[in-house]
Protein backbone atom coordinates (compact mmCIF):
# COMPACT_ATOMS: atom_id res chain seq x y z
CA UNK A 1 0.00 0.00 0.00
CA UNK A 2 2.60 2.51 1.09
CA UNK A 3 4.75 1.46 -1.85
CA UNK A 4 1.93 2.19 -4.29
CA UNK A 5 1.25 5.59 -2.73
CA UNK A 6 4.95 6.47 -2.83
CA UNK A 7 5.28 5.44 -6.47
CA UNK A 8 2.16 7.42 -7.44
CA UNK A 9 3.58 10.45 -5.65
CA UNK A 10 6.92 10.14 -7.44
CA UNK A 11 5.37 9.68 -10.87
CA UNK A 12 2.90 12.55 -10.45
CA UNK A 13 5.66 14.89 -9.25
CA UNK A 14 7.71 13.85 -12.26
CA UNK A 15 4.81 14.61 -14.58
CA UNK A 16 4.41 18.06 -13.01
CA UNK A 17 8.05 18.79 -13.77
CA UNK A 18 7.56 17.44 -17.28
CA UNK A 19 4.72 19.90 -17.74
CA UNK A 20 6.93 22.70 -16.47
CA UNK A 21 9.68 21.72 -18.89
CA UNK A 22 7.24 21.63 -21.81
CA UNK A 23 5.74 25.03 -20.93
CA UNK A 24 9.22 26.53 -20.48
CA UNK A 25 10.39 25.10 -23.78
CA UNK A 26 7.63 26.88 -25.66
CA UNK A 27 7.30 30.09 -23.61
CA UNK A 28 10.83 31.16 -22.62
CA UNK A 29 12.33 34.00 -24.67
CA UNK A 30 15.75 32.75 -25.80
CA UNK A 31 17.89 29.71 -26.46
CA UNK A 32 19.52 29.55 -23.02
CA UNK A 33 16.29 29.83 -21.03
CA UNK A 34 14.69 27.15 -23.15
CA UNK A 35 17.79 24.97 -22.76
CA UNK A 36 17.54 25.51 -19.01
CA UNK A 37 13.89 24.45 -18.91
CA UNK A 38 14.45 21.44 -21.14
CA UNK A 39 17.61 20.31 -19.38
CA UNK A 40 16.56 20.66 -15.77
CA UNK A 41 12.90 19.74 -16.19
CA UNK A 42 13.64 16.73 -18.35
CA UNK A 43 16.38 15.37 -16.08
CA UNK A 44 14.46 15.71 -12.83
CA UNK A 45 11.14 14.50 -14.21
CA UNK A 46 12.70 11.47 -15.90
CA UNK A 47 14.54 10.62 -12.69
CA UNK A 48 11.34 10.92 -10.64
CA UNK A 49 9.18 8.93 -13.05
CA UNK A 50 11.70 6.09 -13.38
CA UNK A 51 12.27 6.02 -9.62
CA UNK A 52 8.49 5.75 -9.31
CA UNK A 53 8.54 2.74 -11.62
CA UNK A 54 11.31 1.18 -9.53
CA UNK A 55 9.36 1.72 -6.31
CA UNK A 56 6.22 0.34 -7.92
CA UNK A 57 8.07 -2.85 -8.87
CA UNK A 58 8.91 -3.40 -5.19
CA UNK A 59 5.30 -4.10 -4.26
CA UNK A 60 5.41 -7.46 -6.02
CA UNK A 61 8.06 -8.72 -3.61
CA UNK A 62 6.88 -10.92 -0.75
CA UNK A 63 9.86 -13.16 -0.25
CA UNK A 64 13.35 -12.14 -1.33
CA UNK A 65 14.55 -15.69 -1.91
CA UNK A 66 11.85 -16.27 -4.53
CA UNK A 67 11.24 -12.83 -5.97
CA UNK A 68 14.80 -11.79 -6.74
CA UNK A 69 14.08 -11.39 -10.49
CA UNK A 70 11.83 -8.44 -9.54
CA UNK A 71 14.72 -6.98 -7.59
CA UNK A 72 16.82 -7.26 -10.76
CA UNK A 73 14.26 -5.14 -12.60
CA UNK A 74 14.48 -2.55 -9.81
CA UNK A 75 18.25 -2.52 -10.07
CA UNK A 76 18.11 -2.08 -13.85
CA UNK A 77 15.72 0.86 -13.47
CA UNK A 78 18.02 2.42 -10.88
CA UNK A 79 20.95 1.95 -13.28
CA UNK A 80 18.95 3.84 -15.91
CA UNK A 81 18.36 6.60 -13.34
CA UNK A 82 22.08 6.90 -12.62
CA UNK A 83 22.91 6.96 -16.30
CA UNK A 84 20.37 9.68 -17.09
CA UNK A 85 21.59 11.64 -14.09
CA UNK A 86 25.09 11.59 -15.58
CA UNK A 87 24.43 12.14 -19.25
CA UNK A 88 21.44 14.45 -19.51
CA UNK A 89 22.97 17.47 -17.72
CA UNK A 90 26.18 16.94 -19.67
CA UNK A 91 24.43 17.10 -23.00
CA UNK A 92 22.56 20.22 -21.88
CA UNK A 93 25.85 21.82 -20.86
CA UNK A 94 27.50 20.88 -24.14
CA UNK A 95 24.60 22.27 -26.17
CA UNK A 96 24.47 25.53 -24.25
CA UNK A 97 28.23 25.94 -24.59
CA UNK A 98 28.08 25.24 -28.30
CA UNK A 99 25.39 27.90 -28.62
CA UNK A 100 27.49 30.41 -26.68
CA UNK A 101 30.57 29.76 -28.80
CA UNK A 102 28.51 29.99 -31.94
CA UNK A 103 27.44 33.52 -31.04
CA UNK A 104 23.82 33.06 -30.03
CA UNK A 105 23.01 36.05 -27.81
CA UNK A 106 20.89 35.65 -24.71
CA UNK A 107 18.18 38.20 -23.95
CA UNK A 108 19.75 40.65 -21.48
CA UNK A 109 18.92 43.93 -19.84
CA UNK A 110 19.92 47.05 -21.72
CA UNK A 111 23.22 48.42 -20.46
CA UNK A 112 24.76 45.01 -19.78
CA UNK A 113 25.93 44.26 -23.32
CA UNK A 114 29.55 43.99 -22.14
CA UNK A 115 28.59 40.63 -20.59
CA UNK A 116 28.50 39.24 -24.10
CA UNK A 117 32.18 39.81 -24.73
CA UNK A 118 34.18 36.62 -24.68
CA UNK A 119 37.33 35.61 -26.54
CA UNK A 120 36.13 32.20 -27.58
CA UNK A 121 32.94 33.45 -29.25
CA UNK A 122 32.15 34.00 -32.86
CA UNK A 123 30.59 37.39 -33.67
CA UNK A 124 26.95 37.57 -32.70
CA UNK A 125 24.44 36.00 -35.01
CA UNK A 126 20.75 36.85 -35.04
CA UNK A 127 18.51 34.88 -32.71
CA UNK A 128 17.13 31.85 -34.58
Amino acid sequence: MIVTVLSILLIVTGLVFFLGAAVGLTRFPDFYCRMHAAGKGDTLSTLLVISGFAVYQLHGIDDFTEDWPVLLVVLKLLAVVVFIYLTSPTSTSALADAGWEDGIDPVIEPGHENHLEDDCRKPSSPQP
Binding site: F83, L86, T90, S93, A94, D97
Partner: peptide
Amino acid sequence: HHRIIVGTTCRIAAPL
Protein backbone atom coordinates in the same frame (compact mmCIF):
# COMPACT_ATOMS: atom_id res chain seq x y z
CA HIS B 1 36.09 24.11 -18.74
CA HIS B 2 33.23 22.66 -20.76
CA ARG B 3 35.47 20.05 -22.32
CA ILE B 4 36.33 18.94 -18.83
CA ILE B 5 32.63 18.37 -18.12
CA VAL B 6 31.95 16.58 -21.38
CA GLY B 7 35.24 14.69 -21.34
CA THR B 8 34.80 13.44 -17.79
CA THR B 9 31.24 12.28 -18.36
CA CYS B 10 32.20 10.51 -21.54
CA ARG B 11 35.12 8.83 -19.86
CA ILE B 12 32.74 7.56 -17.18
CA ALA B 13 30.09 6.60 -19.72
CA ALA B 14 32.31 4.82 -22.25
CA PRO B 15 33.16 1.79 -20.05
CA LEU B 16 29.50 1.46 -19.04
